[in-house]
Design a protein around this nucleic acid. Structure first.
Length: 274
DNA sequence: GCCCAGGAGTGCA
DNA sequence: TGCACTCATGGG
């Protein structure tokens, strides 16, 4: 096991895990076990230092985005003078944007559409248990996120039984296509190129593409617009547009390279009613 | 029974 | 191009 720690002021486990960007983690004593692809780590904080234990410190250092200075991000977020944003950034300064596995993000956010977070977690958990490799961590067992090959071999009936509902066909179609084509060429694309490509997959529309780009491909100039962000737009920014594409344009033009961070502050802050 | 959830695909004007 | 309709499922 490898272990490192980080200033807890800018790395809060609960805020980082609970804000809706990740669907696979569980409580373990006074900390959390966090899963990514076929790996796991143990995350704890005493309020002064947050510690990460795993068998690959380098992977999780990048996973938790620990190269980046969040004090300046929080500062810039507060500089806009929008009350809900200032409150959320101040309260959620320990929220870190994750750099997650690309394929796990693609399939997870296809499942997320028109769905709620607790149910998304349950569906993904059942898919992992059914198709993922069994691994060991911290004296317990867990299931890796399934490979594309395993997903492509599963069939619609499996996904329906896992609770995917009508999204079963999207998973069958998209996993089959990625098995054939791979996604190696997506990693080097610009944000705009990547989103355009993502939109060509079944089950991926503008909002899901933004989430995949933001959490899976580290495209921080993305601003996913869902029902909660629509609410923020109307109630807290006095917005009058209802077209989600135009709302997205409005926010990206306003927040630019900080869009992804600020979107999470607003999304999480609104859900917590901060 | 209703409305809602990290929306997207389809058909038709 | 825009817009209404539909798509499972579970919780409140």
């Amino acid at each position: 096991m490898e272990k490192f720690d980080y200033d807890a002021k800018y790395f809060n486990p609960l805020q980082t895990l609970d804000c809706g960007q990740i669907f696979r983690f569980e409580r373990k004593g006074d900390g959390f076990i966090v899963f990514s692809a076929d790996r796991a780590c143990l995350l704890k904080s005493d309020g002064v230092k947050t510690t990460v234990e795993s068998d690959d410190a380098g992977y999780f250092y990048r996973f938790f985005d620990l190269d980046r200075d969040y004090s300046s991000i929080v500062e810039r977020a507060e500089s806009f003078g929008v009350p809900i944003l200032s409150r959320s950034a101040e309260n959620c300064r320990g929220l870190r944007l994750l750099n997650q596995n690309e394929e796990e993000m693609i399939y997870s956010f296809i499942i997320s559409q028109n769905n709620n977070i607790p149910r998304i977690k349950g569906i993904i958990s059942r898919i992992c248990a059914g198709l993922g490799e069994k691994r060991e961590f911290c004296g317990g067992e867990f299931y890796a996120f399934p490979t594309t090959a395993a997903l492509a071999a599963a069939g619609a009936e499996f996904f329906k039984n896992a609770g995917c509902g009508y999204r079963d066909a999207y998973l069958v179609e998209t996993s089959g296509r990625i098995l054939k084509e791979g996604i190696d060429d997506l990693g080097s694309m610009t944000s705009a190129q990547l989103k355009k490509r993502l939109l060509t997959y079944k089950g991926i529309g503008p909002k899901v593409a933004d989430c995949i780009a933001l959490f899976g491909f580290s495209k921080r100039d993305s601003f996913p617009v869902d029902t909660w962000i629509e609410k923020v737009y109307k109630e807290d920014f006095g917005g009058t547009l209802s077209d989600r594409k135009k709302i997205n344009d409005y926010f990206v033009n306003l927040f630019k390279e900080d869009s992804g961070y600020i979107q999470q502050y607003l999304f999480y802050g609104k859900r917590l009613n901060l």
